[in-house]
Structure formats: structure tokens, C-alpha cells
Amino acid sequence: MSVAACLLLYSFGVAVLVPRPLARLTRKGVAPRLGVAAWLAAIGSVLASWTVAAAVLADDLVRNWNQPGHIASACFAALRQVASGGAGLFLQAALLAVTAVAAGAVITLAWRLVGSLLRARAHTHRHAQQARVVGRHVDGVDAVVLDAPERVAYCVAGRPNTIVVTSATLDALDDRHLGAVLAHERAHLAGRHHQILAFTRGLAAILPRIELFRTASREMARLLEMCADDAAARRYGSPTLLGALLALSGRMPAPRGALGSTGVDVLARAERLALPTTRGDRWRTQLLLSAATLLVVGGPMLTGVLAATGLALCGPLMS
């Protein structure tokens, strides 16, 4: 019981305390890949904590089915007297309810997450397929070309994965610019960025009140763009990629639908392409991000072990 309580406490600590400092650390995109790893580790440790906590509760309940007072004592010492005083049945029912709620919550979350991933996959594959039917092939362009006035380039996962550029994009770019843009998109596909995005976005949509998931989903989108930028810049050079961004950010026809972004993200991306960070800055960020990752991965394990051996602070408090 105390293991479960400690893990829950830990997970809410991470969910509340981690987003802000981690976002500050990854904002400039100094080490985008490490940033992605750190965010994924934070999310993973929270989800793992919940799952293990629910499993421990269920396990406790099953093993101590005949001595409800025993489990309770591990949690609320005061209740022991009540239990021995004949309130066993009530206690048993209460514990059963708590465990059922915890297990139900975890199962519901998993169920909805899987559903959201499957929906995203189906929708994305359908879009890719339609784009391949509707689009043209242009010699020398390793992408599907859609005739449209918007300057747009994007990639969608599918069978096969598909990169889409519009005719307006082709008109705006010269060969090297186009090469850089396509390298950027190929990096997304090769790095399976869609799967990461679908996961973080799904989680943020299911539990929008948890700041960790909300922030992670937003920051992840930025960081993945920066990862792809780096891949394109390695091959074509930062100035070429900047030039491509510049050419594509030209006057676009009035966009349809709602407006979301303010272009701040693109500016941040452009800044890091134009003004590389100093070596010291890079080292510092890499060190801090690695430490953060180790901390959130090791946290639940440490919490679990300490609680199990009764060494943790919450151990003596609750047992």
C-alpha cells in the first residue's frame, strides 16, 4: 500500500514540478534530441508509476484478502483498531473500491490512448493514400505534388510514407532549397516523429488538465521540427535551409480555418540555425537534460525500492 502511495505522490510531483523547468531547458532547442528524450522519460515515468501503483494495490488486495486489517495497517495505523473491532467487512469494501477505481482509471487511460493512436493512424494513412492518388509526380522531385495555391510542405505516415509539397511550394524554391525541405521531411519520417506526436497529442487530449502532458505535447512538436532542421542543415547547410524557410514564409493566400501559431516557433528555429550556440552552453544543456532524464527514470524505481524496504520518508509515516 505504501509503495502505491509513494509512487502516486512521486508521479504527481513530476507532473506538477517538471514541466516548467524542463520547458525552459528545451525552449531554445540547444540539444533537441536530448530534449525529446527527457520529455518522453518524464511522461513514461508518470505513466509507469500509475500502472505499478494500481498493480501493487490490486496485488495487496488479493494477497491479503482475508486480513483486510493487515493492508489497512500499512496505510492508516489508526484504522487498525477499527478493523479488529469488527469493521473488517466495511474496510474490505472500502479497499476494494479504492483498488477498483485505481485499476479502472489505468485501464481506461490505456484503452483511450490505444483508441486515439489507432484513429490517428487510420486517418493519417487515409490522407497519405488520397494524396498519392490525387497528386502528380514531377521528375526529380521525391514527393507527391498537389496543385494548390498555399506554400505547404509536409509529410504523412502511411504505406508507403508520403511527402507532400504543393505546386506553389515548387514555384517558390530552387533546387537546393527544395532539397533541404525534402531532407527535413525525410528526417521526420526516418525518425518516426509521427508516432511520438500521435502519442503525446493523444495523451494531452485525454488528460488535458495534467500540465506535464499538455506542455510535453507542445514542446515535442517544436523539438521534433528542430531535430528535422538539424538533419537538413547537416546535409545542405544552415543558410540553405534558412533560405528555404524564408522563401516559403512569403505571402500566403488567406489561410482557411482557425489560426493557431504566431510564427514564434519558426523564428526560434531560424535563430538557432543562424546563431549556433556556444560550446559551453551546449555542454551545460546536455548535462542538465541528461541529469533530468536520469532523475525522472530513476525516481520511480528509487521510490518503489525505498518504500518497499520501508526506508523512505513515507514508509515510516504510513506503515
Binding site: 484513429r119 493519417t124 509529410c155 504523412v156 497529442r201 516559403l248
Partner: peptide
């Protein structure tokens, strides 16, 4: 539920 990565936002 469409997941794609835009080079630039509108």
C-alpha cells in the same frame, strides 16, 4: 486525428 508535421505553420 490527422498527424502530420508542417514545415511552416499558416
Amino acid at each position: 486525428s490527422l498527424v502530420l508535421t508542417h514545415l511552416l505553420e499558416q
